[in-house]
Amino acid sequence: MLNKKRNRESGEIDGSSLADIAFLLLIFFLVVTTIDVDTGIGLVLPPIPDDIEPPPVRERNLMNILVNAQGMILIDEEPASIGEVRDRIKRFVDNNGVDPDLSESPDDAIVSIKTDRRTPYNIYIDMLDEVMGAYAELRHQASMDRFGVPFTSLEQNSERHTEIRDAYPKKISIAEPDEG
């Protein structure tokens, strides 16, 4: 009678193997995890035009960049090298009405990009990279002048960040592709 009582097992679950189970799961997730942050060049496509005519843009506020089938870059009909693109855009955007051939203000400046069907993709990306680089440099400059800190150190969607972003909006237009 008394023996029975002694043989009864304790009511609690043994917790010592918990760590082993957790380790097993941990190792599984360690193995299958891929922490790759997706990086790339962001862009917003223009919506399909309605029948309404787009508002007219003055010629001086528009910079046409064409990348043709041979991978040559033409800025406003003149051939240019890839290294020139960044400086040309910076001068064009940050003109503020000084040069009559360049933009009136950074807010008005539009960079229009046109491609051919046979344009090599990597040349297009290189060119887009230069355009983004030009805007990044302009924003960095403006941020240093106004606040004394680099633009990248400003917090996303903060007041200062928005101010700089609105001062140099990225107005990049993808031209309508040719028919056929």
Binding site: D38, G40, I41, G42, L43, V44, L45, P46, P47, I48, V67, T115, D116, R117, R118, T119, P120, Y121, Y124, I125, L128, I174, P177
Partner: peptide, 22 residues
């Protein structure tokens, strides 16, 4: 070549998915 990307982009514009990322 960029032609096929142009086609895809045109389709995306028709679909209304305008935010893209290369």
């Amino acid at each position: 070549e960029f032609g096929i990307i142009t086609d895809v982009q045109q389709e995306l514009r028709h679909a209304g998915t305008l935010r893209i990322n290369y």
